[in-house]
Design a protein around this nucleic acid. Structure first.
Lengths: 190, 190
DNA sequence: TGTAATTTGTTGAAAAAGCAACAAAAGTAA
DNA sequence: TTACTTTTGTTGCTTTTTCAACAAATTACA
């Protein structure tokens, strides 16, 4: 890719993020974004339809980075191993400001939703791979586990990471394991 | 000025400085500079003749900034007041890494020389303005005072600023005052 | 020494970015 | 509401930047 494209897009997306840290997304104008990115307004329109499009690309870009950094399996942010989960927490810890902004800006569950969407793909595979004999429907369990996980992640990052990445991983992993096992135990007891 | 020009030039000059912090100027190639600046090699040649030209521009640019930040009188880096001197030390303290690099890179007295050149202009005016009745020729005194001052600045910045900007200013100012007075006293004693 | 690998300048064509100007839309305030 | 200001998209044109390719010069090294 032409290095000018990457430079401009990076500048524009970073500008949006840094503006979102200061003010509500709806109150941000294309002019401000262009100024903050030190880029001509025309350049913004050259790459993006509107600010919602920029936000989408921001989210995808950072989810992609999160995926690359944390998971060998491409295209999925899944909980397919304990160390993957740990790496996820560590990467979010490192860019806490960024993710806090993406998660807390008023009236914008976009990032949260996308994170959950992608995670649910991964967890489906995970459940299949583990060949767990379930009494609970797979889709229900998947929804249950991803909601729980995303919820914990969100709570942890917004609350200024009250535990270390290692601790939170350990605790969450225990819960995830427990919840994947419960159906098996029930079967055994029967 | 087209914002692309400023962006490219800034990137290229910063690249040179950061490379100079790592290795000898003579061993730096245009390729490295372009890579480090994240700019096409052609862009470097579009703005500069060669790496010496880049270095010149770096030096001028930072001397200009030093002048703007420190002296109301434009175009001169002069010791025309105690607070000006203090501001000079403070600005250099703030960008100590940069100035250390410019002053210490092997076999490159370019910055030092330019600093002295500019300072000598200012000190000439200073001497005239003060209407000091001198037994010593003006040009000799100017050379004497600028050499001394630049020497102290260089020693201070390279030696990791062993005194605060305030302290070094106070001490140096005392010496400068003394040396401008000496001829006067001699006259009086006579 | 001689050969290979880098670096250097330069070129031309294509893409991106800049800028100014514009009408339309949206927001503000009297 | 009406005026006024700002923002929004869009357009045409210019400049900068990129990229790839090239021969010449320099450097590395066997």
């Amino acid at each position: 890719m032409d290095r000018r494209i990457k430079k401009s897009q990076d500048a524009i997306m970073n500008a949006l993020i840094s503006l979102m840290a200061e003010k509500e997304f709806e109150k941000i104008t294309i002019n401000e974004i262009a100024d903050c990115a030190n880029v001509n307004r025309g350049t913004v329109y050259f790459h993006y339809m509107d600010k919602y499009h920029i936000l989408d690309c921001c989210i995808e870009s950072h989810l992609e980075q999160l995926g690359e950094g944390c998971f060998p399996v491409e295209g999925t942010v899944a909980i397919d191993s304990k160390t993957s989960l740990l790496r996820t927490f560590q990467l979010m810890e490192k860019n806490a400001d960024l993710y806090t902004t993406l998660l807390t800006n008023k009236g914008l569950p976009a990032f949260r939703n996308r994170l959950q969407e992608i995670m649910i793909e991964g967890i489906h595979k995970q459940i299949v791979d583990n060949n767990i004999n379930l009494k609970v429907h797979k889709d229900i369990l998947a929804q249950f586990l991803t909601s729980a996980t995303v919820g914990v992640i969100e709570w942890w990052i917004i609350g200024s990471m009250p535990y270390s990445a290692e601790d939170i991983t350990e605790q969450l992993w225990t819960l995830l394991e427990l919840n994947q096992m419960i159906p098996v135990h029930i079967v055994k007891i029967d």
